[in-house]
Amino acid sequence: MAKQKVLCFGELLLRISPNSVASSDKQPMQLFVGGAEANVATALAGWDVPVKYCTVLPDNFMSRHMVHYLELKGIFTSSVIYSGNRIGLYYLERGADLKGSMVYDRDHSSFSELKRGMIDWDKVLAGVSWFNFSAISPALNASVADVCLEALEAASKKNITISIDLNYRSRLWKYGKQPIEVMPQLVEYCDVIMGNIWSANTLLGIPVDEKIHDKKSKQAYLDHAKVTSEAIIKRFPKCKTVANTFRFDSEANNILYYTSLYTDGKQYNSNEFTCTGVADRSGSGDCFMAGLIYGLYNNNAPQDIVNYATAAAFGKLQEFGDATEQEVLTITKIDKHTVS
């Protein structure tokens, strides 16, 4: 009997990144296939979780090349819809912070023109036990936010597990709605929520200690993660699992990374990861989301889940491009070489 699939729903993007000065004489730019949900799908497929991807692309040769790329990664693409006229783009320097250096070019993309009724959710959700999306999609416009709600309504009726990454992109919330006016209605349907104490505040209105940085304490951040997790579960009772991530970049380019997972009234904290410099920040959070789904899908122990997801996210920082190519054994070895 075939295993039930994870469905990832979101916009498939092309990322354009400048090459280093040393190699720019040969080719000044590099092109990557990206998008938060596609990155999650790629990781899961590489870890032998059956996964399919739903997005909207124009019916042209470039879209077919992108879909072929997904298929080569082992992702089921029967739920890709062909409509509209353009593929969404974004521009990002390798190693740059997504929040500070990203430039979007997604207006009038095929995905951004989605409307309720365009997707046959009964068909798309057939054979699916898990639905994953992110806060990036409802940030595009009110129509796409409404399609997200439509998908959640359909998945909920089928008792499908629903997860969300509360990734906040201030550059996208430009259509007259604040995140807190949109996101709570969607999160009501979610069983698993990933984010951090700041995104929970911005997107859901969960209180945050504005002076938390002054405490300069890892324990203070972890204690706050527990308070945030409990507040989320109290406000959104369908949610049973909350993950919070912490990544700090120093002026010396040192990276400090750790996470927590809260479920069944208990918090599980990861090991602490450190390094100097990164190859590419893009996709690290998506890799954590994939690790979280991977562990929960396989019914792993909570401590094992948070350890694996954190190691995967940290390992992604040293890979170029948006999606990870790390294998399960590689990630397990990363986790064994951490500092607590």
Rank of each mutant, 00 (worst) to 15 (best):
I212Q: 00
A41S: 06
N141L: 09
Y69I: 09
S199I: 06
I232C: 09
L261P: 00
V33Y: 08
G283S: 06
L7K: 08
N196P: 00
V182L: 08
D264H: 10
V128E: 08
S170F: 11
E71A: 10
V56C: 13
I293P: 02
G74A: 07
N269R: 09
S23T: 15
I136F: 07
M66C: 07
M29S: 13
N167P: 01
C190D: 02
D209G: 05
A323V: 09
V182N: 07
E210H: 13
I75F: 05
V6S: 07
T276I: 11
G34P: 02
H65S: 13
K240E: 12
A22E: 14
I160F: 02
A126W: 10
K216L: 09
R106S: 04
D223R: 00
H337F: 12
I331G: 10
A2Q: 13
F133Q: 05
L296H: 01
D335I: 10
R247I: 05
Y258F: 15
Y189K: 10
T330A: 15
A252Q: 14
P179M: 07
E11P: 11
D335H: 13
D335N: 15
Y294W: 07
F320P: 09
A142S: 15
S134T: 13
Y82N: 01
C190Y: 01
F288N: 02
C287E: 02
W173R: 06
A43L: 03
E37K: 09
K215H: 03
R86I: 04
I136C: 06
T245S: 14
F236W: 08
S134A: 09
C54N: 06
I87K: 07
R94L: 14
K234C: 10
A243E: 03
R169C: 08
K157L: 07
M29T: 14
K215P: 00
G195T: 05
I180Q: 10
H337M: 12
L92M: 06
I16S: 12
V56Y: 05
M289I: 10
Y53S: 06
A311Y: 03
L172D: 05
N167E: 01
N85F: 13
L186Y: 01
A311L: 06
R15S: 04
K26C: 09
G10Y: 03
A290W: 04
